[in-house]
Amino acid sequence: MNIFRLFGDLSHLAAIAILLLKIWKTRSCAGVSGKTQLLFAVCFITRYIDLFLHFVSLYNTEKVMKLIYISASVFTCYLIFFKFKATYDGNHDSMRAEFLIVPAAGLACLINTKFDAIEILWTFSIYLEAVAILPQLFLISKTGEAETITSHYLFAQGSYRALYILNWIYRYHYESHVDTIAIVAGVVQTILYCDFFYLYITKVVKGQKIVLPA
């Protein structure tokens, strides 16, 4: 464990917590893409499938973190699609999620480390996570604005994988550890946030709201 990975995971936890708080406090999921949250839930379930296969004692942090990620993302989907369904902006959350899931699944079968079920699921989860934020960014471009709290959520969500890139550089240099698939997907994922990061740094930090077109 290194500082980059630690802060990356903390940033990821913060993002999940910010979104949950936003929906719970405002009792509304306006401006939140349900599809992105569904895709994240699928990512966690397919990536941590080993939790369900051979149950291991929960004492170690990693298992607890995996369970937190899975339960928090499923609970977020429950809030969006059931509890606060009336506030779900289905019209603007219109990016076809199939166009992300099918290519990720296909690519996972073509480019992977080992052709076995668990590894393919892990690879699928990595590829899907790289593009899972697209419906959310698409929704913001359609509505033309993002609530400040949603911007903070996106900043934390984007920073998590950006910090993981620093973690991979660190591990390459000090542990000569390389996970090419995760690195390539992580770089793609972070690049997708660049436009948003620019808006966040230039606007939200100054207390302004993000309104598109910038």
Binding site: R5, D9, K66, K114, Y164, D179, A182
Partner: peptide
């Protein structure tokens, strides 16, 4: 080759 390519990250 038994590559212990366990993915040890979240």
């Amino acid at each position: 080759e038994g590559n212990s390519n366990q993915h040890d990250e979240l």
